[in-house]
Design a protein around this nucleic acid. Structure first.
Lengths: 153, 153
DNA sequence: TGAGCGAGTTCGTTCTTCGAACTCACTGAG
DNA sequence: CTCAGTGAGTTCGAAGAACGAACTCGCTCA
């Protein structure tokens, strides 16, 4: 990572891309907000989880909310910024369902309020069309980039 | 990760969630497909990159394409499955631009074919509405899940 | 009085990562 | 022909992170 390109993808992954971080977000977004629930549901070592939670709180992705005075107890809830990251999880889930559980035995199904099973799709907010790889062009704003142009499959 | 919940998010992250893997996908999707380009642009140690590339090829996210016989040289290109993962990158980038570069000095801008700057949005493929956290409900299909229901901010 | 719980902390071992140096198969210049 | 250079890795020792079991601390309830 020494002399890497400046990049918001890399910056975001530096925050939430460590092992377990996105699984923490999955859990808190589903309502499992307490330390021992997270340990159980994610299967992470307690000390690692402690470190991840601290990082996510410091970054403003999670916030600690006191749910008991005496003894002081806190639960972890997603912030607005954290919730904005949740769609990434559904997109990853859909990819995993498609490519890693092609047999159809998906571990979980998400239902959208419209009544259908959620199939997340990434669209351009401006024109509403699905984002296709070939429809994009990169415009570096910072030094360090020499883009060859999107590659074909 | 011992006794974790069965989950396509976790499964997907086990494949592409290791350090550098998604940055490899960023590079190859932008056309930097060769080993030394990846080393330079990502800043990863060469041996780690070797391991990541092998994993991504084995998983069917990348494929090796020979571009020179004598000496044998291969480049790494995204497969169809790999390209399906790319929208995740733009979503992460947008989050980073919004929350980590709030001052506006974004390292890169992506332009959509519609002429506007790309602002990716995750929608329900069925009804076309933006996916809001509160509009979803989880339906576990496998044992190991006890969902409390979506949490509020 | 004493078991139990939630939320961590501690600690020794094991697994990864790091980065510099090295290898191997060539190519192209002198 | 020789020799510097290049691309794509491999090797290796040191440093750092993850693992998991055990322990602590504050408190509650029987």
């Amino acid at each position: 990572m020494k002399d890497a390109r400046p990049c918001s993808i890399a910056d975001t992954l530096a925050l939430v891309g460590e092992k377990y971080s996105l699984l923490v977000l999955r859990e808190v977004s589903l309502g499992a907000t307490r330390f021992d629930q997270l340990v159980r549901n994610i299967g992470a070592p307690r000390d690692v989880l402690t470190a991840r939670l601290k990082r996510l709180v410091d970054a403003g992705v999670l916030k600690k909310v006191e749910y008991s005075d005496r003894p002081k107890r806190y639960e972890y809830r997603p912030t607005e910024a954290g919730l904005e990251l949740v769609p990434v999880l559904w997109t990853l889930m859909a990819w995993g369902d498609r490519h890693l559980h092609a047999d159809g035995d998906r571990p979980m199904v998400i239902e959208h309020i419209c009544g259908h099973e959620l199939v997340p799709q990434v669209v351009c907010a401006e024109c509403g069309n699905e984002v296709q790889h070939g429809d994009l062009s990169a415009h570096p704003q910072a030094p360090g980039w020499t883009v060859t142009g999107p590659a074909a499959a």
